[in-house]
Design a protein around this nucleic acid. Structure first.
Length: 863
RNA sequence: GCCGGAGUGGUGAAACUGGUAGACGCACGGGACUCAAAAUCCCGCGGGGGCAACUCCAUGUCGGUUCGAUUCCGACCUCCGGCACCA
């Protein structure tokens, strides 16, 4: 052990040692209990950012902790390597996405290794390699065969000027991010996965995920969005056709006075044809079709619609209902038609007032009357049925059921449920993704690629700059192919690639047998390792990635490829890494090097104006508040960086960056270092104390107890709730206690207690600051790695207190405290409380109503 | 707009099942060591009043339940995340 703590020296020393000894390599071992710890794999953007550091540090602590507990721990790492940034970078640098991606992977792997994470690097995968994505193509074929993958027309963002499809991210306030022109919606034939078939199952299993945070479960449930109600058919006037409508408020059906159809609804064009409204309707449809139809956008639009020149009949009230097409009706939800009840739905109410439509009240509040002429808003609450024929007078909640049954009896409707969840659109008109293995033949239509022809390799030389079509469609040699069914030479390959969420929906299975050549994964390996015991990642993935993964797992289950339905037993969603922003009124956000410190003030280096310290926000390039982990590694080393990430906040909360906080962590490690140094050979040559507390003298008793209490606290903090911040502060307290003893101890047994505590510090810190702990372990005279040591255990007899601190309250306010023997009973406590001077002062002779005694804690006197 | 979450000293946070609000750290102040500085070690540190013993106030705001509320319930305010083609 050197005089000085030098992270650079010890970190590379131990990283090399771990790598050479292959200490993190694992294989299936039926005799050992497995533990699969997974962190969300990164997109290879080129640089590790603090969010990665935090995520992977949390995971690494758990992995190392579980190894010390004796588990066979699978802890892999790989790359979510397909995606848009690679294409953008390739266009910007006139390079190739593959080159950019693989270079980034190399750079990031290097950085991760420097952080000392305990990955089994032999299992590394990159999703852009054909060995990976061919199996995704294989499963796609199976899904197509079973009807789980299908094609339908659907909208994309389209920039007419650039002749290209845009991702939502590339649309800024309705305008194209490159040229600034208005973005419109364009209909394309696209591929979908039928996730809605699994809506109920995905929902039901939400109750069977006790290891998931409550908030994620709630978000998933709301996303799936089950609602119970009824489907009612409204006959169209002078026609045999009917409009099916889904509603959750069938109790208000007598109040339905008009009908709203989604602009995409096929009946809109059909019914308006030949009417005076035909032109107006088609103009409306055209105008709406150019707009963003996402729920978020639609919610923000002014509600509008047009009459389409036809009526339908309310099947219960017999009222003639004018049919409108309206911008708020969505084809994707329910049946694409809304029965509008202006009296009891605020949106319908506003629409009716705007277009002068009839309002009929059918549910009356218990304590008031409603007049349709003077109402200023809809009444959405529960009440008593009126104007509803045979249902008048009954409670509206009861009517939900009664009316649904009546509709079923009459054959004009049925009870049903509806989901908000929509099918998963997986088509991307982009280059850098897995090609969809389908061939379009003029004669045979859609023909799947025969399994023997897989993989369909992504060609290397697509022109990304040529707009207008998918980049792949410009490659004649790729698209032109004989039809596998009829042999016609006129067939063409599908040029869409798959959504990158498909790759991230099964990578955790691939890790189990990353080099498997004959299947997606080796069945035995997956049976051993899966499901993932602990998954860790950003809360921003709480819905999409996690739901898609749960769905994909069900598909694998239905093909009998796996024996479980849920891939992740426990989930930890970590908060973001944030930092304050600094901006100049003239030059916008400022980088740290663009700021001049002048006493208390900060000035913009360019113009000298006073800089404004803004909000603490998520680190992002655009806000210029990013901290590069590389700088930390250079300045403080991996251990300090890791320590700070864990100490500054509990994992689920946002973490605010603080340079001074990092220095604090560094100081703590130095403090431990000096402690070991000061005791020197005295503790190295001692053996750890293993006796009972009554053999000890002086401060050593307190240290002995503190040692065991610390082990207990740290173990529970990590095991129960991943609160590493309090685990670390407990170790700090132990270290402070050791400092309190001084370095002059002569009693050999007391030296043994110090030795014991020093070992505890090394062991308890080893998952958190692994290089540092190895060095400490070596300094204590061990000649094997601390990784091979077991997690320490505590002695119950060291936790027993012989004196308790009792708090005395009067009317719930703290008035006094006293110490008492641990075995004192309730009556003794009462007596002692009542004879306390300070307590008597507040009781002040007033009659005592009640005395509450909480065991071993407090006495509350109520006067 | 809809869905979800968070709000505690100067500051990051702690208080695990309703029972001493502020552990541990940072910043700051004081002391020791030093020719001096840095580093280190020790002490103090929510706010108001008081020489002091002590006392009053305080967990975003307002109300409720309770002997007792940071913790449970209701309303509101502010900030953050997701909203289906960013990953």
């Amino acid at each position: 052990m050197d005089e000085r703590y030098d992270p650079r020296k010890i970190e590379s020393k131990w990283q090399n040692f771990w790598e050479e000894a292959k200490l993190f390599k694992v294989k299936e071992d039926p005799n050992k209990e497995k533990y699969y710890l997974l962190e969300m794999f990164p997109y290879p953007s080129g640089k590790i950012h603090m969010g990665h550091v935090r995520n992977y540090t949390i995971g690494d602590v758990v992995a190392r902790y579980k190894r010390m507990q004796g588990f066979n721990v699978l802890h892999p790492m790989g790359w979510d390597a397909f995606g848009m940034p690679a294409e953008n970078a390739a266009i910007a640098n006139n390079s190739h996405p593959a080159k950019w991606t693989y270079e980034n992977i190399d750079a990031m792997r290097f950085q991760l290794k420097r952080l000392g994470f305990s990955y089994d690097w032999d299992r590394e995968i990159a999703t852009c390699s054909p060995e990976y994505y061919q199996w995704e193509q294989w499963l796609f074929l199976k899904m197509y065969e079973k009807g789980m993958a299908y094609r339908k027309e659907s909208f994309v963002n389209w920039c007419e000027h650039c002749q290209t499809v845009l991702a939502n991210e590339q649309v800024e306030a309705g305008l194209c991010w490159r040229c600034g022109q208005l973005v419109r919606q364009k209909k394309l034939w696209q591929w979908f996965f039928r996730i809605t078939d699994y809506a109920q199952d995905l929902l039901s299993y939400c109750e069977k995920l006790p290891g998931w945070p409550e908030k994620v479960i709630t978000m998933q449930k709301n996303w799936i969005g089950k609602s119970s109600g009824a489907e009612i058919r409204f006959p169209i006037e002078n026609s045999d056709e009917q409009i099916p409508v889904f509603t959750t408020r069938q109790d208000t059906v007598y109040g339905a006075t008009f009908m709203c159809l989604a602009p995409e609804h096929p009946l809109v064009v059909k019914l308006s044809g030949g009417t005076p409204q035909e032109l107006e309707v088609s103009e409306f449809i055209h105008r709406i079709s150019l707009q963003d139809r996402s729920v978020k956008a639609v919610e923000s639009y002014e509600k509008e619609g047009v009459y389409i020149g036809a009526y339908c009949i309310n099947p219960l009230s017999g009222i003639r209902m004018p049919i409108y097409t309206a911008n708020f009706a969505l084809m994707e939800y329910g049946t694409g038609a809304v029965m509008s009840v202006p009296s009891h739905d605020q949106r319908d109410f506003e629409f009716a007032r705007k277009y002068g439509l009839e309002v009929i009240v059918v549910v009356k509040p218990h304590d008031a009357d409603l007049d349709p002429a003077t109402m200023t808003e809809a009444f959405a609450g529960e009440g008593v049925m009126i104007n509803s024929g045979r249902f008048n007078g009954i409670d509206s909640v009861q009517a939900l059921d009664d009316i649904a049954s009546y509709l079923e009896e009459k054959g004009i409707g049925k009870k049903t449920t509806s989901f908000r969840l929509r099918d998963w659109g997986i088509s991307r008109q982009r280059y850098w993704g897995a090609p969809i293995p389908i061939i379009h033949c003029e004669k045979c239509g859609i023909v799947p690629v025969p399994e023997k022809d897989l993989p369909i390799l992504l060609p290397e030389d697509a022109d990304l700059l040529e707009g207008g079509k998918s980049p792949l469609s410009t490659l004649e040699y790729f698209t032109k192919t004989p039809c596998p069914a009829c042999g016609s030479s006129e067939a063409r390959r599908e040029t869409d690639t798959m959504d990158t969420f498909v790759e991230s929906s099964w990578y955790y299975e691939r890790y189990c047998s990353p080099n498997c050549k004959t299947a997606m994964f080796d069945r035995e390996a997956v049976d051993y390792w899966m499901p993932v015991d602990q998954y860790i990642g950003g809360v921003e993935h709480a819905i999409l990635h996690l739901l898609y993964s749960r769905y994909y797992t069900r598909v694998l289950y239905d093909f009998d490829l796996v024996k479980y339905k849920e891939p992740f037993t426990r989930l930890l969603t970590q908060g973001m890494v944030c930092k304050e922003t600094v901006s100049c009124p003239e030059h916008g956000f400022l980088l740290p090097e663009e700021i001049k410190e002048a006493g208390e003030e900060r000035l913009c280096k360019q113009c000298g104006q006073q800089a404004i310290v803004g909000r603490v926000e998520k680190m992002s390039k655009s806000k210029k508040n990013v901290i590069d982990p590389n700088i930390l590694l250079k300045k403080f080393g991996a251990d300090t960086t890791r320590l700070f990430c864990l100490f500054a906040a509990p994992p689920e909360r946002d973490l605010e960056w603080s340079e001074q906080g990092v220095e604090g962590g560094y100081r703590f490690l130095n403090r431990v270092w000096r402690l070991a140094l000061n005791w020197g050979s005295l503790i190295r040559d001692a053996k750890p104390f293993n006796g009972s507390p009554d053999q000890l003298e002086g401060d050593a008793i307190a240290l002995f107890k503190k040692n065991h209490a610390t082990i207990k606290k740290v173990t529970r903090d990590i095991e129960d709730r991943f609160h590493f911040n309090t685990a670390i502060s407990a170790v700090m307290e132990l270290v402070n206690t050791m400092y309190g003893i001084g370095f002059t101890e002569k009693n050999p047994q007391n030296i043994e207690v110090i030795r014991l505590s020093m070992e505890s510090v090394a062991l308890l810190l080893s998952p958190i600051v692994p290089h540092f702990a190895e060095e400490l372990w070596e300094a204590l005279g061990f000649d094997t790695s601390i990784l091979l040591a077991s997690w320490p255990s505590y002695r119950e007899d060291a936790l027993i207190k012989d004196e308790l601190l009792i708090v005395v309250q009067v009317n719930g306010k703290l008035r006094s405290k006293f110490h008492v023997d641990a075995d004192a009973d309730d009556d003794t406590l009462k007596e002692m409380a009542l004879s306390d001077e300070r307590v008597l002062k507040f009781v002040d002779g007033k009659p005592i109503k009640k005395i509450i005694v909480v065991k071993e804690k407090l006495v509350n006197i109520v006067v």
